[in-house]
Design a protein around this nucleic acid. Structure first.
Lengths: 187, 187
DNA sequence: GCCGTGTTCCTAGCAGTGCTAGATTCCGGA
DNA sequence: TCCGGAATCTAGCACTGCTAGGAACACGGC
């Protein structure tokens, strides 16, 4: 009885450590440094153990990091908007979103560039729906506007990360987006 | 004399064929299928020849595809906007941009996900400036609005490609973006 | 306590990757 | 015709993701 429980607990621990190691390693040295050998090294087990937890291999590990990231993002967005209304809510949402992307570039990359997690589908995970829900409710409950707003934020985040847009204008760019989205939501 | 010219011409030809092969292969089977061995096979030379043309290796080849893509995108945007004014110009720009991304997904991925080409820097290639210039002039010559507009279009393109946004609402989403950008530009 | 049993884990290896040192072939010029 | 230098290829390195096979271990029944 208790033995089974201990085993299950150890297994869950190891599962979590794999995901955490992948995230940390990616955040430290970029995703190209995340290899199954290094991952196995970090959790102090051999490579094949990884496949016992993630039959899909490396891709599935990246997807797990991405999924956890969506959960964190949703939390961050909800916490930022909480209690605010109107333009202040839109501004808080924008800042929270872009700060998240800037502070966790590797996780953000996993979420949007690397992992192939369906979004606009029936089997979309709850964490993804929650994040989108935060954007939608802040923008007045309009699905289309939420999609466009999310796209604008995502575009800014990626262009900024790739250096396609100067770092200097960041503050004013954010204000501009807030203006646009708030005006559209108010209408 | 003439021999040297012929050699230079052949070299330039081969250079172009490498880039074209990479683009085609990526568009047919995705970038993960683009390997130096397959590329060498397609141009009917051995692998090391690639490095004579692109000392930076595969990354430099991808960057070349991306750079050519920026040229094509700039042309497409300028041609679409040509002669139009006001909302019609913004709509044409939006359609041209999103159609380009949808029709050449691999090239678009090279431009924004794979290649690390500086943008907002002094040594930004001309093709990149031209594309941005088309967006800026269409949106009233405002640098910040152009950046935000570009971000919105880029965000829509990538979210759409990743299936993060339903295919059904595409038309209305485009109209929405056009509304937002046109309103902001008119102000 | 002991012994089969089944799970858990590791070692070793495969095929494929980007890239390169060294040998080889080729070709223009004398 | 032959030589010298450039152009090109063969073979190999270190790495990748992934897996088959065997070894070691802990468990339950006697």
């Amino acid at each position: 009885m208790a033995i089974q429980e201990r085993k299950a607990r150890e297994r869950a621990d190891r599962h979590a450590r794999i995901v955490a190691s992948a995230r940390d390693l990616a955040e430290e040295q970029g995703w190209e440094a995340v290899t199954t050998r290094r991952l196995a090294d970090r959790i102090e087990y051999s490579q094949p153990v990884l496949y016992g937890h993630f039959p899909g291999g490396k891709d599935e590990i990246v997807a797990a990091v991405a999924l956890a990231g969506f959960g964190e993002l949703a939390e961050a967005l909800e916490a930022a908007v909480d209690g605010r209304r109107g333009r202040a809510a839109v501004a808080a949402l924008t800042d929270a979103y872009l700060d998240f992307a800037a502070e966790r570039p590797a996780v953000y990359a996993a979420m949007f560039d690397l992992a192939a997690i369906p979004f606009a589908a029936d089997d979309t995970p709850a964490a993804l729906r929650a994040g989108f829900g935060a954007v939608r409710s802040t923008l007045g409950g309009d699905d289309e506007l939420a999609e466009v707003g999310w796209a604008a934020l995502h575009g800014l985040a990626t262009l900024r990360r790739a250096g396609r847009v100067p770092a200097a204008g960041e503050t004013r760019r954010r204000e501009r987006v807030v203006d646009l989205l708030h005006a559209a939501a108010a209408r």
